[in-house]
């Protein structure tokens, strides 16, 4: 089980978009709820979480620089192909490490 965390300012808008994008991409690759879980966090609570992967925009990534997790950034939150290109290698590597 790979734990992912989508981070935005308040946890209401863009974090939800990132979460939906991640879920669509991973499901399309055949992964299900036994393989991953995506949570949403606002930037003030994100640092207290311990996912394997944070996914967020460049601005929030700056304040996550020293966390003990992969921090991936996306520019276009609506672009599934960008999320896919950024996420898949890292996701599959971590999933294999945990097997």
């Amino acid at each position: 089980m790979v734990k992912l965390c989508a981070v935005c300012g308040m946890g209401l808008g863009s974090g939800l978009l990132v979460k939906m994008g991640i879920e669509r991409v991973l499901e399309r690759h055949g992964y299900g709820r036994n393989d991953f879980r995506v949570e949403i966090a606002d930037i003030s609570t994100a640092r207290s979480m311990s996912p394997d992967i944070f996914m967020t925009t460049a601005e929030f990534a700056k304040s996550l620089r020293d966390v003990n997790a992969e921090v991936l950034t996306v520019k276009n939150l609506f672009d599934e192909s960008e999320i896919e290109a950024t996420l898949m290698d890292v996701f599959e590597r971590i999933l294999n490490e945990k097997k």
Binding site: C8, G9, G13, S14, L17, I43, T57, A58, E59, F60, K75, N76, L77, F78, D79
Partner: peptide
């Protein structure tokens, strides 16, 4: 939070 609201 800065201009992160420009999401695409």
């Amino acid at each position: 939070f800065g201009p992160y609201i420009v999401v695409a």
